[in-house]
Nucleic acid binder design. Structure first.
Length: 938
RNA sequence: GCCUCGGUGGCGGAACUGGUAGACGCGCUGGAUUCAAAAUCCAGUUCUUUCGGGAGUGUGGGUUCGAUUCCCACCCGAGGUACCA
C-alpha cells in the first residue's frame, strides 16, 4: 500500500468533524491559549495560496499547544462586508448577500480540506445582522462618549452635559473639535436643544465633519485611492475630482498617546511597532498664531522649531484651505484660483512623492510676525498638506530644507539666524547645541534646548502661542458611500443626528434596486424606499411617511471595512450571545489573544483601529485588558505575478506591451487566467470579463496582445490569485501544508512557485516507508539503538524550539534529515516511530493520525503530550582528540567539552600537526572562541 | 518622496551572540535497479583554474585577527502611505 493521501485525508477530515475534535470550552482546568488568524474577506476567486500561509502556521502552533496541554481557542470567520461584492453587484445586479454566501461556502470547503483545527461552532460573519448588531452598538457607545483628558479616558456624554450644566466649559478638559468655543453654565441653559446637540457633537468620540472624497462623476461613485491611477479611474479612465461631504469621523486622535504607550506593553514585531509610532507621529513643538494684516483672521501654525521663530521670512498655506480664498488679493486672485484647481487634481500621495518640482503662488496677503511685527508674505504651495497640523507652515528657509528650496526658487529672502552656519548651498537643519542663534532678539547666543524653552515661555506670556504636542495621526473617517457595509444606526431630526438604542438594533440593511449612488449623488442607501425612522413606533418605515415630526430620514452612509474587524476577536469568545457583544465570564476567561497571526500590510489600518476600539471598550469597563493581542507575528505575503496591458491616456485604446514606446499610458491589470504562459492575452475572454473592454480598441503586435508581468501582493483586487485546490488534488493537503512552511521563513514575503513541491511530497512518501514496505507493516517492537535515539532526540529538540520560535521552515528540514537518517539506519522501531509521529502531527496531521492509529492507539492523537527531549541521548562521543585540525590554522573543539583557554592551548600545542604548521615559530596570537573555534596567528 | 522589510549557487532557502558560507529541498549530471518506463536508491553539483590555487553573500567604502552578520553611502525589489482588505 502506497501513501494514499486522498483516502487518508478524507477519513480524518470526517473523523474530526464528527467528533467536533477542535471545539474549545469556555471552562477548563487546563491553561488557556488563544490563537487567532486574521479572518479572510471571502472573494469570488476563492481562497488563494497566500491565505493558508498564515493559517497553516497558526494551525501548527495551535496543534502544538494542544499537545502541550493547553485549552486552545482557535476560531475562524469571515470579514464579509467589502467593496468587491458590491462592485460585482453593480455589474451584475446580483445581491451582495448572495455573492458573499456563495463565496463563503467555497472558502469553507477549501479551509476544511486543509485540515485546519478551527472551532467552527464559533464562526462569525461581519455581514450578518446578529454580528453587526454589536458593531452598531459599539458605534453608539462611541457616539455617547467623550474623551476626558484629565482622567485620560472616555467617559459618558451624560457626564459632560452635567459639567456644562454646572460650570459651562470652564471645568471641562476634553478632546473636541478645533472650532469648538467656550461658554458658561448660564449660556448653556439658554441654548436651544439643537444648539446643545450641535455642541455635544463637537465632543463625541464619533462626530460629523466636512471631509473630502474622490468623486468620479462618470462612474457616479466615490473611489478609493486604490482605484485611481495617474489621477483617473482605473475602470474606464474617467476624471476624478475632490468633493466635500459631511461624514462621520472617529476621534482616534484622543487615544494617540495611549496607542503609542501601549506599544511598549505588547510583544509585536519591532518594525510593525515602529510603523505605528511613525504613523501616530508624535512631535513636540509649539503652535504660534500670526495675525493677518488688514483682516480679522489669524493663521495658526504648528512648528517643531519655535526656536527659529526669528528666521521666518514667509508663510505657506495648503492650497485647499478655505482661508486662502478669503485673504487672496484681487490682483492675485486669478493666479491663486488656477493653482488651487491644479493642486486639487493631484492626489496627496503624488504631492508628497514629488519633491523635485517646486511650485507655489503668492496670495498678495501679509501676516504680521508676532514678535517683530514685520510683514511676512503669505504664499500657497502644494508641499504643505491640509491634513497635517493646521495646514499652514511658518517658513524658516535657513533652518528647513523645503522652505530653503522654496525660498531659492521664488527668490524670497533668507535670513541666517545661525551664528557661523554656512547656508549658501543648503539649510542648516541640525538641532545643534554648539551653534548659537543670532539676529533673534532675546534668543541671541542661545542654543537649541535653551532657546526652545525660552521662546515657548515668551510666546505663552505674550498670548500668541503655546508649547504643544502634535500628532500626525488624523481622525479616522468612518462614513462610506457604499451599499455593502453596516448601516450607521443614526437618524436625522432637524438636520441633527439622533442615535438609535440597543433595543432597535440591528438596524438591517435595506433592499435597494441600484447599488450605485443616486443620480443626485447621495449614497446607495438613498435608493432605498424603506429607509425612514418612525420615532413613535420605533421602527423602520417607508420613506413616503417622512413628515419631520415623528418620521425622519435615516443615515445613508455605511461603515468602513475596518468597523467589523475591530472587535471580532471578542465575539469568538462568545459567538452566540444574544444579550451582549461578549459575556463578562467569557471575556474574563479568555481575556486576550495570546498569538495573533496576520500580514504587516495591516500595520497602520486594522491593527491600529482595533487597538483604538479596544482601549475605548476597556475605558467603558466592558473588556478586561487594554491591549487585545499579547503577541503578534506577521506572516510574509505570498506574491503573485500580475499581468498588465496599457491604456493610452484619455482614450479607450489599449496597447500590447511592446508598443508603449513614446506613448503616455496607464498600466491596467488584467486577470491572470486570461493570459497564457507566453504572456499572450485572450482578447475575447477579456471583453467578456469586464464591460469597459467590450467597446475598446486594441493595438496588437503580430495580431497578438502581450502583457507586462510584475510581481506584487497576491490579491483579488490585483487579479493575480492562484488557487490551492489543484495542489490538494495532486499532492494532498499535508504536502501543501508542509510545502508552504518549507518555502521559507514565515515572516518573509515570497513569490509563489510550485517548483519544489515534489520534494516535500517525496518526504511524506519516504516517511510512510518507515512504516510500510509495499503492503507490509514493518514497525517492530525492537529496542532502539543509541544512534537512533540520538537522531530522535536531536530532532525533538530542534522541532520543539523551532516551533516555539515560529521557524517552521527549518523544522521541516529537521524532520527530513531525521527521516533520511532513520532510513539509512534501517530503523523501524516503535520506540522511535511513535514519538516521531507526534513531531509530524502539527505539520501533516492527516498522515500522522493515520499512522498513529496503525501504531495501535485507540484515541486520536490530538491531545497526546508532545515528546520531551532526553538530554542523556544527546551526549557526544568524547573519545576523540579534544581538538580537530581542519587543514589550515583553525581548530574546532567538540561542544560537549568545556576546557579553559590554558588547557586548549596546551592541547593544541601537543598536536603534532600544530608543530608542522608552526614550523618552529611561536604563535603570536591566540583567538579562542569558547566551544567554537581557535585561530592561531603566526 | 516618506515609513517598514528584504537582496546569499541555475532556483526556494540555511548559517544560533562576529567564528569552516551554501544545511535541507528543487533542478541538473552520472550510476544502480528494470525488457523498458515510472518509482526507488547511490554519487556529484557556488564560480573559476595552468588543479598549486584564486574569487565569492546587491554595489562601493569602513571597523575587526576574522564580516552574509556591525557601521556609512548608494542601487534594486516588496508592503504601507489614511475609502482594497
Amino acid at each position: 500500500m502506497g501513501y494514499d493521501f486522498q483516502t487518508i485525508e478524507a477519513k480524518w477530515r470526517a473523523y474530526w468533524a464528527k467528533n467536533q475534535a477542535f471545539k474549545a470550552d469556555n471552562q477548563s482546568d487546563l491553561p488557556k491559549y488563544y490563537v487567532l488568524d486574521m479572518f479572510p474577506y471571502p472573494s469570488g476567486d476563492g481562497l488563494h495560496v497566500g491565505h493558508p500561509l498564515g493559517y497553516i502556521a497558526s494551525d501548527i502552533f495551535s496543534r502544538y499547544k494542544r499537545h502541550k496541554g493547553f485549552n486552545v481557542l482557535h476560531p475562524q470567520g469571515y470579514d464579509s462586508f467589502g467593496l468587491p461584492a458590491e462592485q460585482y453587484a453593480i455589474q451584475t445586479g446580483q445581491h451582495p448577500q448572495i455573492t458573499t454566501e456563495t463565496n463563503i461556502n467555497r472558502y469553507r470547503e477549501q479551509l476544511d480540506r486543509m485540515g485546519f483545527s478551527f472551532d467552527w461552532s464559533r464562526e462569525v460573519r461581519t455581514s450578518q445582522p446578529d454580528y453587526y448588531k454589536w458593531t452598531q452598538w459599539i458605534f453608539l457607545q462611541l457616539f455617547n462618549a467623550y474623551y476626558d483628558t484629565k482622567e485620560n479616558k472616555a467617559l459618558p456624554i451624560t457626564q459632560l452635559i452635567h459639567l456644562f450644566e454646572n460650570d459651562g466649559t470652564s471645568k471641562v478638559e476634553a478632546v473636541r473639535d478645533s472650532d469648538a468655543s467656550d461658554f458658561s453654565a448660564d449660556e448653556w441653559a439658554q441654548f436651544s436643544d439643537e444648539q446643545k446637540q450641535h455642541i455635544l457633537l463637537q465632543y463625541r468620540l464619533t462626530y460629523l465633519s466636512d471631509t473630502e472624497v474622490n468623486w468620479c462623476p462618470a462612474l457616479g461613485t466615490v473611489l478609493a485611492n486604490d482605484e485611481i491611477i495617474n489621477g483617473v479611474s482605473e475602470r474606464g479612465g474617467h476624471a476624478v475630482t475632490k468633493k466635500k461631504m459631511k461624514q462621520w469621523s472617529m476621534r482616534i486622535g484622543a487615544y494617540a498617546e495611549r496607542l503609542l504607550q501601549g506599544l511598549e506593553t505588547i510583544d509585536w514585531p519591532e518594525p510593525l511597532k515602529e510603523m505605528q509610532r511613525n504613523w501616530i507621529g508624535k512631535s513636540v513643538g509649539a503652535s504660534v498664531r500670526f495675525q493677518i494684516q488688514n483682516h480679522p483672521e489669524q493663521i495658526e501654525v504648528f512648528t517643531t522649531r519655535p526656536d527659529t521663530l526669528f528666521g521666518v521670512t514667509f508663510m505657506t498655506l495648503a492650497p485647499e484651505l478655505d482661508l486662502v480664498r478669503q485673504i487672496t488679493t484681487a490682483e492675485q486672485k486669478q493666479e491663486v484660483e488656477e493653482y488651487i484647481d491644479k493642486a486639487s487634481k493631484r492626489s496627496e500621495r503624488e504631492r508628497m512623492a514629488d519633491v523635485k518640482s517646486i511650485s507655489g503662488v503668492f496670495t498678495g496677503a501679509f501676516a504680521i510676525h508676532p514678535l517683530t511685527q514685520e510683514l511676512i508674505p503669505i504664499w500657497i504651495g502644494d508641499y504643505v498638506l491640509a491634513g497635517y497640523g493646521t495646514g499652514a507652515v511658518m517658513a524658516v528657509p535657513c533652518g528647513d530644507q523645503r522652505d530653503y528650496d522654496f525660498a531659492k526658487h521664488f527668490e524670497l529672502p533668507i535670513k541666517n539666524i545661525f551664528e557661523g552656519a554656512d547656508i549658501r548651498e543648503a539649510a542648516f537643519t541640525e538641532k545643534s547645541e554648539t551653534v548659537a542663534l543670532q539676529h533673534s532678539d532675546f534668543l541671541n547666543g542661545l542654543t537649541y534646548a535653551t532657546a526652545m524653552k525660552k521662546v515657548i515661555a515668551h510666546i505663552e506670556a505674550k498670548g500668541c502661542g503655546k508649547g504643544t504636542i502634535n500628532y500626525r495621526l488624523r481622525d479616522a473617517i468612518f462614513s462610506r458611500q457604499r451599499y455593502w457595509g453596516e448601516p450607521i444606526p443614526i437618524y436625522y431630526k432637524n438636520g441633527l443626528p439622533q442615535a438609535l438604542s440597543l433595543k432597535h438594533l440591528p438596524l438591517e440593511l435595506p433592499e435597494v434596486e441600484q447599488y450605485l449612488p443616486t443620480p443626485d449623488g447621495a449614497p446607495p442607501l438613498g435608493n432605498a424606499t424603506n429607509w425612514a425612522w418612525d420615532e413613535k413606533k420605533e421602527k423602520v418605515v417607508s420613506n413616503a411617511l417622512i413628515d419631520h415630526k415623528s418620521v425622519f430620514p435615516l443615515e445613508l452612509n455605511t461603515m468602513p471595512g475596518w468597523a467589523g474587524s475591530s472587535w471580532y476577536f471578542y465575539r469568538y469568545m462568545d459567538a452566540k450571545n444574544k444579550e451582549n457583544f461578549v459575556s463578562k465570564e467569557a471575556a474574563n476567561y479568555w481575556r486576550e489573544v495570546d498569538l495573533y497571526l496576520g500580514g504587516s500590510e495591516h500595520a497602520t489600518g486594522h491593527l491600529l483601529y482595533s487597538r483604538f476600539w479596544q482601549k475605548f471598550l476597556f475605558d467603558k469597563g466592558l473588556l478586561p485588558v487594554e491591549e487585545y493581542a499579547k503577541k503578534l507575528i506577521n506572516q510574509g505575503m505570498i506574491l503573485g505575478t500580475s499581468a498588465f496591458i496599457y491604456r493610452k491616456t484619455g482614450t479607450q485604446t489599449y496597447l500590447s506591451k511592446g508598443l508603449i514606446e513614446g506613448e503616455t499610458v496607464e498600466p491596467i491589470r488584467v486577470h491572470i487566467s486570461l493570459v497564457n504562459s507566453a504572456d499572450e492575452l485572450d482578447l475575447e475572454e477579456l471583453k467578456k470579463w469586464q464591460p469597459q473592454f467590450e467597446s475598446a480598441t486594441f493595438e496588437l503586435e503580430n495580431g497578438k496582445c502581450f502583457v507586462h508581468r510584475e510581481v506584487e501582493k497576491m490579491s483579488k483586487s490585483k487579479y493575480n490569485v492562484v488557487n490551492p485546490d489543484e495542489i490538494c488534488d495532486t499532492y494532498g493537503a499535508d504536502t501543501l501544508r508542509m510545502y508552504e512552511m518549507f518555502l521559507g521563513p514565515i515572516e518573509q514575503a515570497k513569490p509563489w512557485n510550485t517548483a519544489g513541491i515534489s520534494g516535500v511530497h517525496n518526504f511524506l512518501k519516504k516517511y510512510w516507508r518507515l512504516f510500510y514496505n509495499e503492503d507490509t507493516w514493518i514497525v517492530n517492537e525492537n529496542q532502539a539503538g543509541k544512534k537512533e535515539l540520538k537522531v530522535l532526540h536531536e530532532t525533538i529538540k530542534k522541532v520543539s524550539t523551532d516551533i516555539e520560535n515560529f521557524s517552521f521552515n527549518t523544522c521541516v528540514s529537521s524532520l527530513m534529515i531525521c527521516v533520511n537518517e532513520l532510513t539509512n539506519l534501517e530503523c523501524h522501531s516503535k520506540e522511535i516511530l511513535t514519538p516521531l509521529t507526534l513531531l509530524l502531527a502539527p505539520f501533516a496531521p492527516h498522515i500522522a493520525e493515520e499512522i498513529w492509529e496503525k501504531l495501535g492507539n485507540t484515541s486520536s492523537l490530538i491531545s497526546v503530550p508532545f515528546p520531551l527531549v532526553n538530554e542523556a541521548h544527546l551526549v557526544e562521543d568524547t573519545k576523540n582528540y579534544p581538538v580537530s585540525f581542519n587543514g589550515k590554522m583553525r581548530y574546532t573543539i567538540p561542544l560537549s567539552l568545556s576546557l579553559d583557554n590554558q588547557a586548549i592551548q596546551e592541547a593544541v600545542l601537543a598536536d603534532k600537526r600544530t608543530a608542522e604548521y608552526l614550523g618552529g615559530k611561536t604563535p603570536k596570537k591566540w583567538i579562542i572562541v569558547p566551544n567554537k573555534i581557535i585561530n592561531i596567528v603566526i
